[in-house]
Amino acid sequence: REWTEQETLLLLEALEMYKDDWNKVSEHVGSRTQDECILHFLR
């Protein structure tokens, strides 16, 4: 499923705060797994 604008904003926000702590990043996004966050980030 597609990422919403809100999810993408949360991802970018989390990356600024937590860098590459993907566990914390995915918790911050809330609706995505670590793997989904990493894959989206790599696009």
Rank of each mutant, 00 (worst) to 15 (best):
R1E: 14
R1M: 14
R1Y: 11
R1I: 15
R1S: 14
E2F: 03
E2K: 15
E2L: 13
E2W: 01
E2S: 15
E2N: 14
W3P: 09
W3L: 08
W3H: 09
W3D: 12
W3C: 03
W3R: 04
W3S: 05
W3E: 04
T4P: 02
T4I: 11
T4G: 01
T4N: 13
T4V: 02
E5Q: 13
E5T: 10
Q6D: 08
Q6S: 10
Q6I: 09
Q6M: 13
Q6G: 10
Q6P: 11
Q6Y: 07
Q6N: 11
Q6V: 08
E7A: 03
E7R: 00
E7H: 01
E7G: 01
E7W: 00
E7Y: 00
E7K: 00
E7I: 02
T8E: 12
T8I: 11
T8K: 12
T8S: 08
T8M: 13
L9A: 13
L9I: 12
L9Y: 10
L9E: 10
L10G: 08
L10K: 11
L10R: 07
L10P: 04
L10Q: 10
L10E: 15
L10H: 08
L11T: 04
L11R: 02
L11P: 00
L11C: 08
L11E: 02
L11I: 02
L12R: 14
E13R: 07
E13G: 07
E13T: 07
E13C: 02
E13V: 03
E13L: 02
E13N: 04
A14R: 01
A14D: 01
A14N: 02
A14P: 00
A14M: 00
A14K: 00
A14L: 01
A14F: 00
L15N: 10
L15C: 12
L15W: 11
L15P: 02
L15A: 15
E16S: 06
E16F: 04
E16C: 05
E16I: 01
E16D: 08
E16A: 10
E16T: 09
M17F: 01
M17Q: 10
M17N: 11
M17G: 08
M17P: 03
M17L: 11
M17T: 09
M17C: 06
M17E: 12
Y18Q: 03
Y18N: 10
Y18W: 08
Y18S: 06
Y18D: 06
Y18K: 03
Y18F: 04
Y18I: 08
Y18E: 07
Y18H: 12
K19R: 08
K19E: 10
K19F: 08
K19W: 03
K19V: 06
K19Y: 04
D20K: 11
D20H: 11
D20F: 05
D20P: 11
D20S: 11
D20V: 03
D21P: 00
D21M: 01
D21L: 00
D21Y: 02
D21A: 07
D21E: 08
W22N: 01
W22P: 01
W22T: 04
W22I: 02
W22G: 02
N23M: 11
N23V: 11
N23D: 12
N23T: 11
N23G: 12
K24L: 11
K24N: 03
K24F: 11
K24Q: 11
K24W: 05
K24I: 05
K24A: 13
V25H: 02
V25M: 11
V25S: 03
V25N: 06
V25P: 01
V25C: 14
S26N: 02
S26M: 13
S26C: 09
S26K: 13
E27S: 07
E27L: 03
E27F: 05
E27H: 04
E27M: 07
E27D: 07
H28E: 01
H28D: 00
H28G: 05
H28A: 04
H28T: 06
H28L: 04
V29A: 02
G30R: 07
G30M: 05
G30V: 10
G30W: 01
G30K: 10
G30Y: 08
S31R: 07
S31D: 11
S31Q: 13
S31Y: 10
S31W: 10
S31K: 10
S31G: 11
R32F: 04
R32M: 07
R32S: 00
R32P: 00
R32L: 01
R32W: 02
T33F: 02
T33L: 10
T33C: 09
T33A: 11
T33G: 10
T33E: 06
Q34A: 06
Q34P: 10
Q34C: 12
Q34T: 13
Q34L: 09
Q34V: 10
D35Y: 03
D35V: 02
D35T: 07
D35G: 11
D35S: 12
D35I: 04
E36T: 02
E36P: 01
E36C: 05
E36K: 03
E36V: 00
E36R: 00
E36Q: 12
C37K: 05
C37Q: 07
C37V: 08
C37R: 02
C37P: 01
C37W: 00
C37S: 04
C37D: 03
C37H: 05
I38K: 15
I38E: 15
I38S: 14
I38V: 10
I38A: 13
I38Y: 12
L39V: 10
L39F: 10
L39H: 13
L39C: 14
H40N: 05
H40R: 12
H40T: 06
H40Q: 09
H40M: 08
H40L: 04
H40F: 15
H40E: 15
H40P: 02
F41R: 15
F41K: 15
F41S: 14
F41T: 11
F41Y: 13
F41G: 15
F41I: 06
L42F: 13
L42A: 14
L42S: 15
L42T: 15
L42R: 15
L42C: 11
L42P: 13
